[in-house]
Amino acid sequence: MVGLHEYLILSGLLFLIGAVGVLTRSNGLILFMSLELMLNAVNLTFVAFSRYTGRLDGHVFVFLVTAVAAAEAAVGLAIFVNLFRLHRSVNVDQMNAMGD
């Protein structure tokens, strides 16, 4: 039987990889996908704890996180399409419209 710690370490590694992606990439869409990866890593923690404590509350939270992530995907991608029409690029390093 696989122990809880193995799921937690896998989830931590996936979260770390997603965080590295958010911090090092400049393409807005890859940034967005790294964010989705981080959300999924947290979801795995919820499901693992849910199984190892025998309570279903974690499943409900994962369900809600999935709904919010899908909503975020719709709004985020609409914003990226509009940004691309303005700047002809989705490179977030060049986005400084609110900076000065």
Binding site: M1, G3, L4, H5, L8, I9, G12, L13, L16, R51, Y52, T53, G54
Partner: peptide
């Protein structure tokens, strides 16, 4: 981090109910 966490967490809730 993974090796450290493995040492600390191993054995906590090892068997699911």
């Amino acid at each position: 981090l993974a090796t450290k966490a493995f040492g600390v967490l191993a054995g906590v809730l090892a068997v699911p109910p």
